[in-house]
């Protein structure tokens, strides 16, 4: 081992210890208790597959899985589309100073609790809320928005939009402007430049941003509960229901592990898509 490597080891130790203590060990424990039993509301160490068998054979589990997946995918697409125009503006049309200021403001929503922000959306989305009042002014009948998948999506976008815009802006800002100018010089119109130069070059940041949105939405409990009305249940709702049902933490652990596996596989696929070579 070289002297440089030896000097680096102490620096790597804290993050390694952190990950081991607060990620790997709890994850291992989660995996282990998925094989435990519950006897008289008490967790008992065991080695049984009955929790896996029970959960994976329930139609309610797979319905919740499909619902969670489609909502998270929807959140990723909607958030990416909503963020992109703002990120393009920040990356290409404003001064460096304005961009820094805007990026700072993007962090401001995180100063307030996400739960509070979601609750405040209820005042906008309720049947007699602000949005429907404004629609009524222009002669549009009230729309049911609260306690629906639309409501959940609004919550997910609230959660992920600032982060995704940040990621996209950073990615777009690093694009070599000469390439964009070259496209213009070669008479590519704005649309063609966007789709054949900017988006391909910004692909890693777009995909990583969408992945963040997907991950945040997939595990979120707040938006589907307070804006989606808790029905149909997402996997997070199912975990709550399962623990309420006679202390079935091992079954909840099964749901959690399936969620983690799903996110790991999705992340691998996204990273390959983001950084894969173009043919």
């Amino acid at each position: 081992m070289s002297n440089t490597s030896r000097r680096r080891w102490p620096l790597l130790l804290p993050p390694l210890l952190w990950q081991l203590t607060f990620f790997l060990l709890p994850l291992l424990f989660l995996f282990v208790i998925s094989f435990w039993s519950v006897v008289n509301f008490r967790l008992e160490p065991d080695m049984t597959l009955k929790n896996w068998d029970f959960m994976l054979s329930r139609s309610s589990f797979w319905s919740a899985y499909g619902h969670t997946w489609s909502l998270a995918l929807g959140a990723a697409v909607v958030t990416t589309c909503c963020s992109f125009p703002a990120a393009c503006s920040l990356a290409f049309t404003v001064s460096e100073r304005t961009r820094k200021l805007a990026l700072m403001f993007l962090v401001v929503p995180f100063f307030t609790s996400y739960l509070v922000r979601v609750y405040s959306w209820q005042a906008f989305l309720a049947d007699n809320g602000i949005v429907n009042a404004l629609l009524a002014v222009v002669g549009i009948d009230g729309l049911p928005m609260l306690n629906s998948d639309f409501g959940s999506l609004v919550g997910y976008v609230t959660l992920a939009l600032p982060l995704v815009t940040l990621v996209q802006t950073m990615g777009l800002a690093q694009i070599d402007r000469n390439l964009i100018e070259a496209a213009h010089n070669l008479r590519a119109g704005p649309v063609r430049t966007l789709f054949e130069v900017i988006i391909p070059l910004a692909k890693p940041s777009l995909v990583v941003g969408a992945l963040f949105a997907f991950i945040l939405a997939f595990g979120d409990f707040v938006a589907p509960t307070y804006l989606g009305g808790g029905a149909p249940p997402t996997l997070s709702n199912l975990i709550i229901d399962t623990t309420k049902s006679g202390q079935q933490w091992p079954r909840a652990a099964v749901v959690a592990i399936v969620m983690i596996l799903t996110l790991v596989l999705t992340s691998i696929a996204a990273v390959r898509l983001a950084y894969g070579r173009r043919k």
């Binding site: 609750y119 209820q122 005042a123 309720a126 049947d127 307070y226 009305g229 808790g230 029905a231």
Partner: peptide, 19 residues
């Protein structure tokens, strides 16, 4: 007929805002 399933906070706000 059902709008959703709510915990204490959700029930509270749903009844209060008329939803």
């Amino acid at each position: 007929q059902v709008a959703g399933f709510f915990d204490y906070g959700g029930t509270f706000s749903g009844l209060k805002n008329g939803q």
